[in-house]
């Protein structure tokens, strides 16, 4: 998400469009560009089969409490060998 800078100065994020005039940080997806994310998850104790659900949310107002939009959801079942040492 573009993190807008309050009045284009300093380190504070702007609250609304009337305060925004710059960028502090920018993590948006840019046209034609690929972004990669990597996550590492330990299986819960005793399990060798794991269902992984990846959800991509668009949060227009920055939190799940306000108008969240589920853009993509992918489910994967991941199993590992049950034998060996």
């Amino acid at each position: 998400m573009p993190i807008p800078q309050q009045f284009a100065r300093g380190d504070r994020m702007g609250r609304g469009p009337y305060e925004k005039s710059g960028l502090i940080s920018e993590t948006s997806l840019h046209p034609g560009k690929t972004k990669k994310e990597h996550f590492e998850i330990f299986y819960p104790e005793g399990l060798t089969d794991l269902d992984v659900t990846v959800k991509l949310w668009y949060l227009p107002y920055g939190t799940m409490a306000s108008d969240p939009f589920l853009w993509r959801e992918v489910n994967k079942s991941v199993s590992i060998s049950k034998e060996g040492k």
């Binding site: 034609g32 994310e37 996550f39 590492e40």
Partner: peptide
Amino acid sequence: PYVAVDISMTNKAGHV
């Protein structure tokens, strides 16, 4: 036991 999740997102729109 461990799982690695690799996610790839490519923007195909004409804007951010």
